[in-house]
Amino acid sequence: MDLSFLFFYLFAAVAVGAALVVVLNRNILHCAMALVLMFFAIAALFLMLGAEFIAAVQVLVYAGAIMVLFLFVILLIQIDRVQMLRFAHRQSPLVVIIAVLLLAELLYMIIRGTLGIAPGGADAAAAGAASGSTEAFGALLYTTYLFPFEVASVLLLAAMIGAILLARLDKEEVGGVSRQDMS
């Protein structure tokens, strides 16, 4: 037996622990940093599976770009007022439903995995074997999985246009003085 089991449990424990901190801690910045730690733990798990490209992108995109944006917003809003977050919010029922759905999906995948059925069929198994190589990953992304890939990018584009539209509306209402000028 090699040491990889030990490391798997180490990183898994870090990921779960950090995720708990994200949910339970009341200081918003500590939550954000715990989330970064969780992304790192997940990236380490990807590395152990031989998916180097995914691991690097995980750190690069989530920890390196998205969380920096989060931090930017946290710094920009007044931290004293929001420092102690309320633990439960009004959307709780919805959150419970989504959480249950996600858990069900996860359990389904785990059960399939333990039964020896590769999730997503042979293509995904091939992708899993080849995902260490960036070239194979890119080839799959532009052939087999082209449609979901394009849908995701259209979704992102729509979100971006929406954000720009909202920002511009805001600017007109304030009347000449934009939010950017004040920061």
């Binding site: 970064v36 180097e52 490209f53 691991a55 690097a56 992108v57 750190v59 690069l60 920890a63 390196g64 770009a65 920096v68 931090l71 260490g132 190589s133 960036t134």
Partner: peptide, 17 residues
């Protein structure tokens, strides 16, 4: 490592923290 450049890129993006 076979993701050499991405490794550099991921780490330098950490520096801002």
């Amino acid at each position: 490592v076979n993701i050499g450049f991405l490794y550099i890129f991921a780490l330098t993006s950490m520096g801002v923290y």
